[in-house]
Write a protein that binds this DNA or RNA. Structure first.
Lengths: 144, 144
DNA sequence: TACTTACTTATAATTATTATAAAATAAAAA
DNA sequence: TTTTTATTTTATAATAATTATAAGTAAGTA
């Protein structure tokens, strides 16, 4: 995710307004490595800004996602998680409890091509699907 | 996705029953490369099996996902897409229209480690996020 | 064939996300 | 500074995907 200053420029360059709500949401996401959902962010943000609406939060998250500053993670628990850490990294996805964990392993590719099959590429990640330490026992029961 | 025979064994080995519904759903997914949603599958399946319920379809899809035979794809359009093609491959994700396209490019890693950070690994994929050919014009407007 | 347990169905409930329209406000213009 | 205007926010309502429940059905087994 870019810095607050760069995001400010991004909004201004497109005729947008740098509102208190946008700043608050940006600051809460910046350097956050916890993959929060919209609802989790909302509960946290409401403490400092009780009138903030969920719609605004969703609008701001969708906007950041369209710029490539955050990424959506579907971990299968019914709500979308957001990840402001968009540098190349490895994600581990549990097939049973749906947890998504950032791995400590280095990704195989450190840089992405600028273009692929007509797509302009902004970021990338590697995902490994399997059974987390907690669910490995369950795995032994279901994967026979 | 494993073959129908292997899935049959999988169910039987766990005290399950190979029902007409499971077979029908398995057969429809096998060799399918279109990333269908539950609803899309349901419309198709209902033609041959009018009393099939959405609940059964969801149950069967979740079951296949927990075995690693299919993978969930969140393309941001509000419903989960399912991908029975779980061999290593590259996916291109558009940040604007949320389309997810299988790339023709070879993945950087052809095989996954058996274990990573305590996870038992079943499959993996590479994802590249950016702007698809259709949305690249929009990109020029929003990414200033 | 009959029994047991797992599965399926129909229905209802839940919940995440988006649409809408009025009110508020940031930023540019006067 | 005040005014203006377009963008944004808010509150509310609507939508739609997915899951829970409970009664009925059928696969596998003896």
């Amino acid at each position: 995710m870019r810095t607050i200053e760069e995001l400010t420029e991004q909004v201004r360059n497109n005729g947008g307004k740098v509102t208190a709500q946008r700043l608050l949401i940006w600051q809460t996401l910046y350097n956050n490595r916890t993959h929060p959902t919209a609802e989790e962010l909302y509960q946290k943000l409401k403490q400092g800004s009780p009138t903030l609406s969920l719609t605004t939060l969703y609008n701001t998250l969708n906007e950041l996602a369209s710029w490539g500053d955050i990424r959506r993670i579907d971990n299968g628990d019914g709500s979308i998680h957001y990840d402001p850490f968009v540098e190349p990294h490895v994600e581990l996805v549990c097939l049973i409890c749906h947890k998504v964990v950032d791995s400590q392993s280095k990704p195989a590719l450190l840089s992405a091509p600028e273009e692929m099959d007509g797509f302009k590429i902004i970021s990338h990640s590697e995902q490994y699907y399997g059974y987390c330490p907690v669910c490995r026992d369950t795995f032994n029961q279901i994967k026979k």
